[in-house]
């Protein structure tokens, strides 16, 4: 009985202590912010949406290879020996046309691995984070500076060239055994 009333008293007393603590908070400035109207200052180096500066990309595929979720899609066309594509701003020579550079922002896990391997620092994370879209396809960002028609044409040309080269090689390989059967045998490995 005694214990019961002691518990009741202590219950009331400790609740009063807690109410004093909460009462103090009434006079403190609020810690919340009304988000769309007030905004937080994001720190430097924050990791939000990816952006690629198409002028500096050399098409090295490093970002696509390291991406843990495979959200970067690149297609390149080798430059012809007569073409000079110049240099990236860091001095790396550009030897390929980057005809396609797509990033699926819905797949991206914002891990920042791709930007650390980029040799020309053309791929970086911006501080934009509000990018909700109504269609899933609008979340796939295309960064290449080539028009799609032109890009498709270039890729088709390259594929044709490669096919022609492969055919020539096959023809040569087919022709070779007649001349030098011993030399044409591939080294076993």
């Amino acid at each position: 009985m005694r214990q019961y009333f002691r518990d009741v008293w202590r219950g009331v007393f400790t609740v009063l202590i807690g109410m004093r603590e909460t009462w103090v908070h009434v006079f403190r400035p609020p810690t919340t912010k009304q988000y769309p109207h007030e905004r937080f200052q994001l720190p430097p180096g924050t990791r939000q949406q990816l952006f690629m500066n198409a002028d500096d990309c050399i098409g090295c595929f490093k970002c696509a290879r390291i991406c843990p979720v495979n959200c970067i899609y690149i297609d390149t066309v080798k430059a012809k020996p007569t073409e000079d594509l110049g240099k990236a701003s860091t001095g790396n020579p550009i030897r390929q046309h980057v005809v396609r550079f797509d990033i699926d922002m819905f797949k991206c896990c914002y891990c920042d691995d791709c930007t650390t391997v980029c040799p020309t620092e053309c791929l970086y994370m911006t501080d934009k984070f509000e990018a909700s879209v109504y269609e899933r396809s609008n979340g796939i960002y295309h960064f290449s500076k080539y028009e799609p028609a032109l890009a498709m044409k270039m890729l088709a040309e390259q594929a044709a060239e490669e096919a022609a080269a492969a055919a020539a090689k096959a023809a040569k390989a087919a022709a070779a055994p007649k001349k030098e059967p011993a030399a044409a045998a591939p080294a076993p490995h």
Partner: peptide
């Protein structure tokens, strides 16, 4: 602690 951990209830 005053608010929660010390609360008898």
């Amino acid at each position: 602690n005053r608010l929660l951990s010390g609360n008898q209830i």
